[in-house]
Amino acid sequence: MNDTTPTDAPILRCEGLRKSFGNLEVLKGIDLDVKRGDRIAIIGGSGSGKSTFLRCLNFMEQPTGGKVILDGERIGTPRTGRDGSETVTYRERDLMSVRKRVGMVFQQFNLFPHMSTIENVMEGLVTVLRQSKSAARTRAAEQLDRVGLGDKLDVYPSRLSGGQQQRVAIARALAMDPEVLLFDEPTSSLDPELVGEVLRTILALAEDGRTMLLVTHELGFAYRFATHVIYLYDGVVHETGTAEQVFRNPQKEKTRAFIARSSEFSL
């Protein structure tokens, strides 16, 4: 439940976050504060590092530098080397507890094909939260009903459209009642006519006051969805502000150009 101490302290914070793949530095030091109830859209061109950044927040990718702080607690065990440099080790147990609290919806859905819709949603409840099967089933059915799939409980993912699959994935993440929910380009692999149903589902969550971060290139949607926007360029935060500020009145030249280039963006 999201009713811990009612402070203004950020639920999720990162400082100087870095990530390299071999010699290629993708994230070059990113700072971010996420407060409860924030909805943050992360936008940027391809190769800007926006997906990598999001994936670092639940450690689908392990950052190579900087800090991730969840609800005031730093993730990982830092060790200072003799030369003063810091290396952080992430134990599986730490990462598991982060992921329990920070959910993710993937571009490719990543549903489990050998399980029915409801079994997909129950899986985390039973194996991770150790709920009884019957309790998990009730909760999973509720969540599926909520995303409009109450009539597809026993259907296998392969029988569903892309849009329906993504809604199952959203239900699967929601069922865990995460404190923060991450969306990694949730509509990028969908046919155009299926995008709408998924966007509507996500907007409905916004009304519940859930804390969410979204990577997308649908700028029109980002504008309707977000309280705050981050524009990433070349691995750093190039511009950030409220959705109004960044979309209506961008301060930087590159941001303006990026928004102007997006033909689909109409406010």
């Binding site: 689908m60 993710m104 993937f106 899986e123 993440a173 865990m176």
Partner: peptide, 15 residues
């Protein structure tokens, strides 16, 4: 993707 889907839910790699 299947590993990611599972671990993103908080599952251990053994699970």
């Amino acid at each position: 993707g299947q590993w990611e889907g599972a671990t993103a839910l908080g599952m251990s790699s053994k699970d």
